[in-house]
């Protein structure tokens, strides 16, 4: 990660406000979500996707990015309610962070992946070497690169 310190320091120096807005993303704190959504990857913080995206993800668990990830119907409803209530556009993150995360996402778009958001792509383009992508195996493996992802820290 060392080689990212230089660009990061530069980014912090030039964009103190933008960087500060991004300091921490509230980690998932709902026990049902923490049980059912950590079996194949980390529980992605709800604040990284708009409510309509979480509704779509939770309605399609039978074909979840090519895999069957079905859970009990009771848990599905609990988790959907939690994710929707804490989504990017539900007031759970600051208006400034929300507009950053949803930059170039129009109301008619329903991104199913955090890693498909233009903001996310912009943050990662040119920041990650090919070897690091290969080691992580998937953009969804946030914790492979962000060691403190489970606690909500993504800036290293």
């Amino acid at each position: 990660m060392n080689r990212f310190i230089a660009p990061l320091a530069f980014a912090l120096a030039t964009l103190p406000l933008a960087a500060a807005a991004q300091d921490k993303m509230t980690p998932v704190n709902d026990p049902t979500t923490l049980t059912d959504c950590t079996e194949c990857h980390m529980a992605f913080p709800a604040g990284f996707l708009p409510a309509r995206s979480w509704e779509a993800v939770m309605a399609g668990l039978k074909d979840h990015f090519g895999e069957n990830a079905t859970i009990s119907e009771a848990n599905r409803l609990t988790i959907t309610a939690y994710l929707v209530a804490n989504a990017t556009d539900s007031g759970a993150v600051s208006a400034r962070t929300a507009s950053r995360i949803l930059r170039n996402v129009t109301d008619s778009m329903t991104p199913l992946r955090i890693s498909d958001l233009p903001w996310w792509k912009n943050e990662h383009d040119g920041e990650v070497s090919k070897a690091e992508w290969e080691r992580a195996k998937s953009p969804a493996n946030c914790a492979a690169c962000h060691r403190d992802a489970a606690r909500g820290y993504f800036e290293d």
């Binding site: 194949c40 990857h41 990015f65 090519g66 895999e67 992580a136 195996k137 969804a140 493996n141 492979a144």
Partner: peptide, 17 residues
């Protein structure tokens, strides 16, 4: 695909887990 061809080995989900 995930459990590898050797059940004694550690496998890997498509998410890198």
């Amino acid at each position: 695909s995930c459990h590898t061809a050797d059940p004694k080995a550690t496998g890997m989900a498509r998410t890198g887990k």
